[in-house]
Structures are given as structure tokens and as C-alpha cells.
Design a protein around this nucleic acid. Structure first.
Lengths: 222, 222
DNA sequence: CAGAAGTGGAGGAGATGGCTCCACTTTGTG
DNA sequence: CACAAAGTGGAGCCATCTCCTCCACTTCTG
């Protein structure tokens, strides 16, 4: 309501536009590092502006998130579509899950937007829905080739993603690529036939690392 | 310090002892349902006593947790040792992981105590350490038999547990046994050889269920 | 029945987070 | 340049949460 309700497209003053960009950049960083939970106060601090400035530009956090992540999600859908065109259907599926894990591991905000059903994110929700048919086809294609076990269904993928995401959340500070090891195990579990286990892409953690990872684990809400 | 510091073993008055039991029972329930995060106020409410009473008996929540979970963990270690005596080494391992998931799925508090490295829980920590050698032997035994893939290490188990725990946290209200499906996939991924995938013990979720599960997902801390 | 033991729950203290408000600065236009 | 409109910053208010204390009162026990 504060942002020129009558002339919604009047351009911002130059300094204001500069600040707006700084806020968006700071928000991107902050969300990636700390998740969607960061306060607008923190974003303001990072952007080097006052809280008031943030609130005038983005009346609530949702609008900021919506603006920020729509593109990222669409980009990810495009990536998934590319996996659909991979020569080998299993490789395509594998690459898809791997890329998703990769992104989730580096960008907490993206993970939260992609996985959780945050309400009220118009544009993000619409973008996310584009995933469904692509995932379905990835699964069907790999099954048709006899590569993916037949009893897997498309809805298994987001849940597998969620499992691996939880893991990488805990191990991120201990060994940022540890998720690759468990992705390897899960992918082997998804194969229709496996002559022998695929070598794991990442070494196991030692006891101390596991302890640290567990310490990083935070039980859900209260 | 409030609990008779000079004569630590003087018995409580009868009504006080009754209340103590009520508090322990309420705490067990509350922790199982809502995790260790529940407030002592909430436990008091459930026990039908005042907060003050809880605080006099258990100066801090840790002591309450410590007292409550030591036995549960030791019991679980005993269960693990039993798995070690299973005829088939793979069955033993499988049963172990399954039982762990089962407990985690019904008792949030146990999961948090067992997985997270909560500090300052003397007795619980000691009990938890008893797990290490048992898990190691479970793994080695199954590997010696050529049932478990050779590149798995004992520290993989807690992390796998963590993954499945995260999943069952989200699906608990949608389909409490959904974790069995993903346990099946992961176990297949752990096999040294698998002629064909083991049939999954649980059907896949439909789209609406997945949506609800995702909604239940709470990103870690802030 | 006396006095020791135990109780309850209002409320203080301290975090934390969302957001507003307005005296001030900056910009752009005539 | 001058001056109105646009934009700014951040102190600080309000609401929420949780932990925990305190003490007038109740209940037990010898």
C-alpha cells in the first residue's frame, strides 16, 4: 500500500532502485545460507540499508521470496527437462536427482521453497507445479527401459529428495559432499537390476564427523 | 539443589511421590508425541500439577530427560544385540534398522535423544555409546557373509537412520508407515548382490499425501 | 494438631521477531 | 539554486514465547 498504489509502474528514484537491487541480492545470499527463516532485519543489515527501507519495498517477506525464487524454480524445471532428453534414461534420472541434491545442498532457501508447501507463494507454486509432469516422465522413461524398478512411483522422488535433503542439512558443515555417498546407496536401491553395487562416489564419515553432524541436527518445530 | 541436598535418599512424602510418578508419565507421553522441545509447563499441565512442582523435582529439563531415556536406550541396545544373534546376518541387520525406524516413528523424544548429540546428558550419553560396538559388529557380520555391500562402514547406519527419521517425521500424520517403503529402497541399495529388487512393503503415496507431507516438513532451526 | 513438606500458578525476566513512525537526507525538477 | 517530493534509517513498540521463581496456601505425618 505504501508503494505508489495509484501509479504502480512509476519508476523508482535512482537511489531507491539501487537499494532495491541491494536488498534482492542480500536476500538471495541470506536465504541461500540460512534458509527462509532469516528476518527482514537481517536482510536489511546485509544490504546495508535500514529495516524501514526493506519493509517499504516488500511489504511482507512472502512477496520478496516469491519474486526471488520464481525464476530459480523455472530454471530448475528446465534442467529437469534436459535430463529427460539424456541419451540414457537412467543417467537422466540419476542426473536429475543429483542436481536437485546439489542445489538443495548449496541453497537452503531453494530447498525450502521447492520442498515445503509454503502458502501464499503464487508464482512459486505455479512454477513448482511444472515439475510434476517432468518427474513423471523421467520415472516412466527409466521404467520403460527396464532400468528403474517397476514398483517406484513418481511421488517417491520428492520424498527421496526430502530424505537426502535432511542428510545434507546435517553434514553440510562437516563434509559438504557427504550426500553423494547416500545418494549412491539410494540410487542403487532404485535400480531394476544391479549386477554389483555401484562404487560410492564419496568416502564414509568417521566417528567424530558423524558426531558433529548429529549435533547439527535440529529436531523439527516445537 | 532444592531436593534435600543433605539427605538425598530421604523418601518423598507419599503425595509428592505420587506427583513425581505423574510427572514422569506425563513427560514420557509428551516427549514421545512432541519431542524434547515441550516445555516443563506443558508437562505440568499434562500431569495435572503446577509448574512449580515440576521444577522442584527436576531442577532442569535435562535431568528429567536423562532419567527418562537412559533405560529406553539401554533397552534398545539390548534389542540390537539380539539382532546380532539372528540366524541370518542380513536379517539381523535389516531387523535392527527396521526396529530403530519403528521406534523413531512412534517416539520423537527417543529419536532426538538417540540421534542428536544433546549435551549434558550423562547417563544417556553413556548408554548411547554402547551402540557403537554393536552396530559395528552387525555391519561386519553381514559383510563377512557377503550380504552387505563391502564399501559400507558402520557410521553409515546412523546417517541412514537420520534420513529415514526425517522422512517419517513428515509422513507420520499422512501415512504413519510410509517409512517402510523407503527403508525397503535403502536396504536394497545396501545389498551386496540383488538378483531382483525386494518387493516394497508399503504402497507409494498419492500426490495429495505428498503435498500434506511436505507441508508438515519444517526447515531446521532459524 | 503443630510444624514440616509440598503445592500451584501468577507473573517477572529475558529472548526474539515483525513492523511502524517520523525527523532527517537525497533526488530531480522548474 | 531552491524546494517539494521521494526516500531513508533505526530506535523502539508490541506481541509472543519460554524459563523459572516465589510465597501464600494446602496437605501430610508423627
Amino acid at each position: 500500500m505504501a508503494t505508489s498504489p495509484i501509479t504502480p509502474d512509476r519508476p523508482l528514484r535512482r537511489d531507491a532502485e539501487r537499494n532495491r537491487q541491494a536488498i534482492l541480492a542480500a536476500a538471495r545470499d541470506a536465504f541461500a545460507e540460512d534458509g527462509l527463516g532469516v528476518t527482514l532485519d537481517e536482510i536489511a543489515r546485509r544490504a546495508g540499508v535500514g529495516v524501514g527501507t526493506v519493509y517499504r519495498r516488500f511489504p511482507d517477506k512472502e512477496q520478496l521470496i516469491d519474486a526471488l525464487f520464481e525464476d530459480e524454480i523455472r530454471g530448475f524445471v528446465a534442467l529437469a527437462e534436459e535430463c529427460l532428453r539424456a541419451e540414457d534414461s537412467w543417467d537422466g534420472l540419476q542426473r536429475f536427482v543429483e542436481q536437485a541434491c546439489q542445489v538443495h545442498a548449496c541453497d537452503r532457501g531453494f530447498k525450502e521453497v521447492a520442498l515445503s508447501g509454503v502458502h501464499g507463494l503464487e508464482r512459486v507454486s505455479r512454477a513448482r507445479e511444472l515439475m510434476v509432469p517432468v518427474v513423471t516422465r523421467l520415472v516412466q522413461r527409466a521404467q520403460a527401459d527396464g532400468k528403474l524398478r517397476a514398483d517406484v512411483v513418481p511421488t517417491d522422488l520428492p520424498l527421496i529428495q526430502l530424505m537426502l535433503g535432511a542428510l545434507s542439512e546435517c553434514t553440510r558443515d562437516v563434509d559438504p559432499d557427504a550426500w553423494r555417498r547416500y545418494l549412491g546407496i539410494v540410487m542403487d536401491g532404485l535400480r531394476a537390476r544391479c549386477e554389483a553395487p555401484t562404487p560410492l562416489a564419496h568416502p564414509g564419515l568417521d566417528v567424530a564427523q558423524v558426531q558433529d553432524a548429529m549435533r547439527a541436527w535440529r529436531p523439527a518445530a516445537r
